[in-house]
């Protein structure tokens, strides 16, 4: 299917771009997801606003509140950033970036766009299938072919979130800086939203004008300007593990990111996040609770891993993801032990 015709403009500033956005005018960054969606006729904006011409949107800058990663930073530039490469607390992010997609896609795709990807679900991506996420009445995966679908937080949509970096970023307690119209909740022109709030589970009342149910709370007139990774405590470390069916270029069957801060040989704080298992990057709160004050021993890990999947609700064809999630998580812990 040919893309619907659209008009195109280069933005000079975020404010200018945001002021022009609406349901029919969409921002364009790397375009690796948007152009594919447009080719399939799944979205058909009338206008695209190119964000790549906005000065200062790409790159990594250290601020008092942590690292600010410009939303237009490509995955490959971010992965090779010297500061990221050096810091053990950020290792999960580098690993997640390096295991994403392919060199070509990493050169093109941006970190902001990566967080805003639509599900890769084979029902969602099929223009013939009127699934719930696209404004239809039901999820076709729920009782259909769902080996790649969710084991947590599913319903009404059971498609997992496709981003690897988001899993790592959530484990690093990152936030996004969102620019939007002054008249809403954007003091100084922006608002800061923790990723844990930014990603939203499928909700019937959370809907765009075109009937689509978005994966984040971003409104159609808002733009992600930056990802903010807060300064971690001294000695914090992180790891990321991804399980795929192919050696590369595959979305995660399951991924796991763990960030640990130790107090002596006991866990002072941890953030444990699973990917490929829920409509959003899935924070495993029970695992974190189980770890608090514990050693990272075989027993401690086993308890945490069990706790992480205690609430899993697999579908007809993805029971195996429960075992995979446990193993991926255990591997991530092993990497940090």
């Amino acid at each position: 299917m040919a893309m619907h015709p659209f008009a195109y403009a280069n933005a000079n500033s975020l404010e200018e771009a945001a002021a022009n956005l609406d349901g029919e005018t969409r921002p364009l960054a790397g375009g690796t997801d948007l152009v594919a969606l447009m080719k399939d006729g799944l979205v058909a904006p009338k206008r695209l606003v190119n964000l790549k011409t906005v000065p200062g949107l790409a790159g990594v800058v250290a601020h008092a509140d942590g690292l600010h990663i410009g939303a237009l930073t490509t995955l490959s530039n971010l992965a090779s950033n010297p500061e990221l490469q050096e810091r053990r607390d950020l290792a999960a992010l580098v690993e997640a970036l390096e295991e994403s997609a392919t060199p070509q896609l990493r050169h093109t795709a941006t970190i902001g766009g990566n967080l805003l990807q639509w599900p890769r679900c084979w029902y969602f991506r099929n223009p013939q299938v009127p699934c719930w996420r696209k404004g239809g009445r039901r999820c076709f995966a729920f009782q259909g072919e769902n080996k790649y679908h969710t084991i947590f937080g599913g319903g009404p949509c059971f498609a997992p979130h496709p981003s690897d970096p988001s899993v790592a970023l959530m484990a690093l307690d990152a936030s996004v800086l969102v620019v939007g119209p002054q008249d809403r909740d954007h003091r100084n022109g922006f608002r800061v939203v923790p990723l844990a709030e930014f990603f939203v589970l499928p909700r019937r009342d959370h809907e765009w004008a075109d009937g689509y149910h978005p994966v984040t709370l971003l409104e159609t007139d808002e733009i992600v300007a930056a990802v903010v990774v807060p300064q971690a405590a001294d000695g914090a470390r992180s790891a990321f593990v991804k399980v795929m069916e192919r050696g590369a270029w595959d979305f995660a069957l399951v991924s796991a990111a763990v960030s640990l801060t130790m107090d002596g040989n006991r866990v002072a704080a941890s953030r444990v996040v699973l990917g490929g298992v829920a409509p959003i990057p899935w924070r495993a709160n029970q695992a974190e609770a189980a770890l608090r004050g514990e050693r990272v021993s075989e027993d401690g890990v086993a308890r945490a891993v069990r706790a992480a999947v205690a609430d899993a609700r697999p579908l007809g064809h993805n029971e195996y993801k429960v075992a995979l999630a446990k193993q991926a998580l255990a591997q991530a812990f092993r990497a940090l032990a």
Partner: peptide
């Protein structure tokens, strides 16, 4: 494939590889 799933369209843009099938010419 037209969807960035095969790599047959790979070109080099500003020194780095990209899929020309997912890249708008106007970009």
């Amino acid at each position: 494939c037209g969807h960035g799933q095969c790599g047959a369209c790979t070109v080099i843009l500003d020194g780095e590889t990209a899929y020309a099938c997912l890249t708008l010419a106007i970009d």
